[in-house]
Each structure stands twice: as structure tokens, then as C-alpha cells.
Simulated scan of single mutants.
Amino acid sequence: MNAALTGKTALVTGGTSGIGLAVVRRFVEEGAHVVVTGRRRAQLDAVAAELGDAVTTVQADASDPAQVNALFEAVAGRGTGLHAVHVNAGGGEFKPLAEVSAQDIDTAFATNVRGTILTVQGALPFLGEGAAIVVTGSTAGSGTEKDFGLYGASKAAVATLTRTWAAELAPRGIRINTVVPGPTETPGLTGLAPGNEAGLLAAIAAGLPFGRVLRPEEVAATVLFLVSDQSSGMTGGEVFVDGGSTIA
């Protein structure tokens, strides 16, 4: 059976660790050439060393218009267009309302909202009929977890944008969906408790129906599904890969 992405070109932003890196690896396994972005050159070099000619790495901050333009100049240089895009670059601070600063607001929305808009805008000229985009959302976008209000608001905005864009892009035959991971064992999660990573994961797992956090590869499998022909009837949706965390 042919691999799902044989001969296709994909873009993964924020693809040097965690879910993004798992997606890059899965796309390569499925036959794609993957353009990978990240903010840190050393991490990009590690991805290139691991995956070789199957990837093109571009150092870029998704919230910086000039760097996003440079990214798509590199995409244009390949001359292959884009068949799949995973908009995964993002992040945020987690603080109670009383401690949120104006800079925190600007940073959260620049990283998660402006970065997503600029990336999808930049990709549009390279996408043809049958192409698919997946945006990484968060259960915080519809949750009530304390200290996650600002981050959740930015991710809720991303989900709204995705639904709107689905209607705009449908006449071009382009699909876009949001994947919504639950607690996943990534550097972004374990970094919340330096020196007590195992304790943090165990505490989170204790409150989940499966009794464990997710693996990045589980989310990557869903991203692959959403960019493949297997999901050809899906657009504008939010697909939860959360280990049941929203029902816990």
C-alpha cells in the first residue's frame, strides 16, 4: 500500500520538539518532504541530522512577518507547492488574571494568533485543490483551568479563525481543521516543573480516564489523518485527541 504522502511537500511550524517533531517524523515516514521551522538553530540542525534530505529546515519565528516571508521564499525555492501544512508553533505563559501584564497579552496573541494568521496567509499561494491545513489548538480553548485564561483565549481565537477559513477556502478545494491535544508528554509540559517532571506527569495522569498522559505520536497520527485523503470530507472541525481529559 502506498504511503499517504508519497511525493508530497509538507510544512510543519514549530517542528523541532514535542508534537511538531512527532508530526515531522510521521510525515517523512509517509513519504513527504517536510519544510520544518523553529526558532532555535541547534534544534533545527538536530532534526536535519536525524532526517537528512527528507527535510528542509528554516529558522523562523512565526510571529515575525519578515521571518515568515523568508520561510515562504524557501518554500517557493523548492518549486513543489505545498500539499499539507501543520501550524504548530505556539506557546504561552500561565498566570492568574491578577498577574497578567500587557506584555503577556501581546506575547500570547502574537505567538498563537498572529503567528497562525501569518503562516496560513503565507501558505495560500502554494496550496492547490486537495491540500489540507491542520492547526494545533488546545483543550484550554474551551476549558476553565485556572491560570490558563490568557493562553486559552488565544487558542479559542485560533479555533474561531479555523472555522471561518474553512468556509473561505472550501471553494478552492482546501480543507482546514484544528487538532486539540490533551495533556501530552512534551518539553512544553514537563518544563512547567523543572526537576519534578515525573511527579508532574503522574499528578496529571491521575486525573485522566486512561491514567496516563498522551504521547506526541498519538497526536501526530491524527494530524496525518487530517491531511490525508482519509479525511477528505472534513473541514472546519475540532478533533479532540485528549485522552478523555474533557470528560474527566
Rank of each mutant, 00 (worst) to 15 (best):
G173F: 03
F27M: 07
N196Q: 14
A131R: 04
I105G: 01
L150Q: 04
T37I: 09
V87F: 04
Q59D: 11
T235P: 05
S245I: 01
V180L: 05
G152W: 01
K8C: 09
L82G: 03
N196C: 10
T56S: 14
L192N: 10
R41Y: 06
A123L: 12
M234C: 12
P181M: 08
D229F: 13
T184K: 08
N69I: 08
G233N: 14
G128W: 06
H33D: 03
F210G: 09
P125D: 11
T164C: 08
F72H: 03
A102Q: 11
Y151G: 02
F210W: 11
G236N: 07
G243L: 00
G137L: 05
V227H: 07
A221Q: 05
F94W: 06
F148P: 00
D106M: 10
A206N: 07
R215V: 06
P65R: 15
E238L: 08
L44W: 04
G115L: 03
G207F: 03
V120Q: 08
G207T: 08
S17A: 12
L51N: 04
R39N: 08
V23C: 08
G77L: 12
L71W: 02
A110W: 00
S17Q: 12
T13I: 15
S17H: 10
M1F: 06
A108T: 11
F72M: 13
D45F: 08
G20C: 09
L169Y: 04
Q230H: 11
G77D: 06
